[in-house]
Design a protein around this nucleic acid. Sequence first.
RNA 1: GGAGGAGUGGCAGAGUGGUCGAAUGCAUCGGUCUUGAAAACCGACGUGGGGGUAAAACUCCACCGUGGGUUCGAAUCCCACCUCCUCCGCCA
Length: 430
Amino acid sequence: MHDIRFIRQFPEAFDDALKRRGDSPVAERILELDRRRRRRIARAEKLRAEQKAASRKIGRAKAEGDMAKFDVLRRKVSEARETMTVLDREASEADDALRQLLLTIPNRAFKDVPDGSSEDDNLVVRTWGEPREFSFEPREHFEIPGVASGMDFKTAARMSGSRFVLMSGAVARLHRALGQFMIDTQTRENGLLEMWTPVLVRGNAMRGTGQLPKFAEDSYRTEGGQWLIPTAEVTLTNIAGDTIVDEHCLPWRFCAHTQCFRSEAGAAGKDTAGMLRQHQFEKVEMVSVTAPEASIEELERMRGCAEGILEALGLPYRTVVLCTGDMGFGARKTYDLEVWLPGQGKHREISSVSNCGDFQARRMNARLRRRASRAVEFVHTLNGSGLAVGRTLIAVLENGQRQDGGVDIPKALEPYVDGATSISASGELA
RNA sequence: GGAGGAGUGGCAGAGUGGUCGAAUGCAUCGGUCUUGAAAACCGACGUGGGGGUAAAACUCCACCGUGGGUUCGAAUCCCACCUCCUCCGCCA
């Protein structure tokens, strides 16, 4: 949600920001709605003030027992009432219209975000690790002999449909180990507070983080009207919603390991093989809530928390800054971490770390109170994957695969799999 | 699912038709006192919006769970909804 005062003051800058993202200008439309809204409010309030004053007089007349005066005044106010009802309604309609429009406009990118229209314009800012030299043709994760038996898409499809998986044995175990390893690392080494959150939320929470109203078709809704979260960003960020927190309590740094649900509408035919793109997956999510002046630095810290997992697992990756056209709805700046997948011979997104500025905070009314001035202002919110568990499993399997069909397990994971160092070609931990 | 109770400022908690944005307490902030701190005392202290201003000052409007309604006038009366709590039922 945008600050209407900013748009009033800098309509050109506002439209320029939209243009950078490839969207058409709306400032003129917004300002017209705003003018209409303000005109209605001014008129309605003036009338209300008069009516209020008259009411007080009526009260006084009655108290003094002057019934003649009482009746005259009362009739007069009665007549004005109808006009006021109309003006009131028009004012609130104008207000709603403006609000609805503002809710569908994406955030403005920071100045240091590269302009561009697609992922081709993203900027690589860091590369870590060397893709391994294979003495054989590396396979995609689901083709690796030691993995195939533990990753069953057919059975999952029979009960749930496409884009679901049934994992078993060593693969299931390794997947669980990854989630545990990630959340342990984020809490022990990076000092984030572990949270356990609902995965079903009200529409209001989805609106707060920006999934609604515009992207309803991307998420699942229950019959009762609740939504399955597409990411724990929704629940973790909404912790700050509708609160005023003392500034010295910030930053808040949360993480949670949850199931995530996405309809993947519009991704038909994309990444259909393997478990890269599933309707249900696990993710360890990080969320920070900071004072406005601290969010830029916090983004770098959070990015480091995500990168640290890949490095601990020895997975080669690169970090890119998303260009304006590739950024998500609520972000002012986003880093994507792309892990090297030898089976595909490509880098694929495994984490996305964003600074949303006050965009989400405005939507959910998340504020802080300054210690010295007692002033209240909106907090800044950030979120990032730390990391997507399913995709990390893919990366571990593809990068660790051996010619014999087995997979070497990263050292950091050994404590989480009873000291096993590999999965054999027959799919056993060894 | 059934029955009952309740939702008021950062928190607790008064207030049942007329200057109520709302007593009081706690918390917070400023000050006095003190070597310092505590205590005590004095003072300040809601949010959002409109007008106004260079910015203030100032001024108006709204907000007592949400949305409607009654009334000249609603925190207070009526209706619907939401949420929470208690008891019963069911249940991982």
